[in-house]
Simulated assay, not measured.
Amino acid sequence: MISKSNLNKAALFIALLFHICGLIGILLTPYKEWFISITPIHLLLMAALLIATHRKKSKQFFLFFLITCTAGFLIEAAGVSTAAVFGKYMYGETLGLQLFNVPLIIGINWFIIIYCAGMFTQAYENYMLQRLSKGGFLVSKQLQAASFIIDAVFLTVMFDWVMEPVAVKLGYWQWQNNHIPLFNYISWIIISALLLALFRKLNAGSRNIFAVHLFIIQLLFFLVLRTFL
């Protein structure tokens, strides 16, 4: 049976391989459209790796997974049909099979972003609490919770800000008049705060170093594409 350490190393290798190959394929080869077209497979693989590397596969974790995927899809469906959630936008065909004009894979994407941001923040929080504890400082549970939500929401919205222009260029979705409204980011703040509060309430997190690495890898992936695409 593969050890957790080796599983994390294997997951990190696969994630790096896929993202580096994706960058090369999109930026430097004539097969750009093919690399873009396998985005749904890529997202499914990354989600599978996150689930595989999650240490405590409890009912709470799978409940968080189900709620986040479902809520993400339904929010996007409401957003596309009413333009009242994020602004006026529509999905292209790049992300695959659709229901209510929304790709089914989009719920998985919400899970990946929220889960990785939550894990990243939790890892940082644990590190800081240990440092403060050694210095004799105690932080209340309320302050810990507030700090977690604020930090994780910042990471989530920052990730969306980096991703948005790239997603448009890759044909994931299009905004009316090619303008990304400020309202989009305000909605991301509210929705991600609620989902991250659920992440903490259900205690869905357990130490998952791969999730931290994947957040950094994906952020760098979109930063490179945003710079050179």
Score class of each variant (00 low, 15 high):
90 M>V: 14
99 L>I: 14
68 T>P: 06
99 L>F: 14
70 T>D: 08
88 K>I: 07
66 L>Q: 02
83 A>W: 13
60 Q>V: 01
59 K>C: 08
52 A>K: 08
94 T>D: 01
58 S>Y: 06
62 F>V: 07
101 N>F: 13
62 F>T: 06
101 N>T: 11
86 F>T: 11
82 T>I: 11
60 Q>D: 11
100 F>A: 13
67 I>F: 09
73 F>V: 04
92 G>M: 05
92 G>K: 01
59 K>G: 14
78 A>G: 15
86 F>D: 08
69 C>R: 03
85 V>C: 09
101 N>L: 02
51 I>T: 13
73 F>R: 00
65 F>W: 11
72 G>E: 12
90 M>S: 15
95 L>Q: 04
84 A>M: 13
68 T>I: 04
85 V>W: 09
71 A>L: 14
81 S>V: 09
64 F>I: 01
74 L>N: 05
83 A>I: 05
55 R>N: 11
98 Q>R: 10
82 T>H: 10
93 E>N: 06
69 C>G: 14
54 H>P: 03
66 L>Y: 05
90 M>C: 09
58 S>I: 09
93 E>W: 04
86 F>V: 10
70 T>P: 03
75 I>N: 06
78 A>Q: 08
80 V>T: 09
55 R>W: 08
71 A>C: 14
51 I>V: 15
80 V>Y: 04
63 L>P: 00
101 N>A: 11
61 F>W: 08
91 Y>A: 01
78 A>W: 11
99 L>V: 15
88 K>A: 15
53 T>I: 05
97 L>T: 15
100 F>L: 14
94 T>Q: 09
86 F>E: 10
99 L>N: 01
88 K>L: 06
100 F>P: 00
67 I>K: 00
70 T>W: 07
101 N>G: 00
74 L>H: 03
81 S>D: 08
69 C>V: 15
65 F>G: 01
53 T>R: 02
65 F>K: 00
52 A>P: 02
91 Y>K: 05
65 F>N: 03
87 G>P: 07
96 G>R: 00
64 F>T: 08
72 G>P: 10
91 Y>F: 15
81 S>Q: 11
54 H>V: 10
97 L>K: 12
65 F>M: 09
76 E>Q: 10
84 A>G: 00
54 H>F: 08
58 S>M: 10
71 A>P: 03
77 A>I: 03
81 S>C: 02
53 T>G: 01
96 G>F: 00
70 T>V: 13
100 F>Q: 03
99 L>C: 10
88 K>P: 06
93 E>V: 08
79 G>Y: 02
84 A>C: 09
72 G>N: 09
90 M>R: 12
64 F>M: 04
53 T>V: 10
99 L>G: 08
89 Y>V: 12
69 C>I: 15
98 Q>L: 05
59 K>A: 14
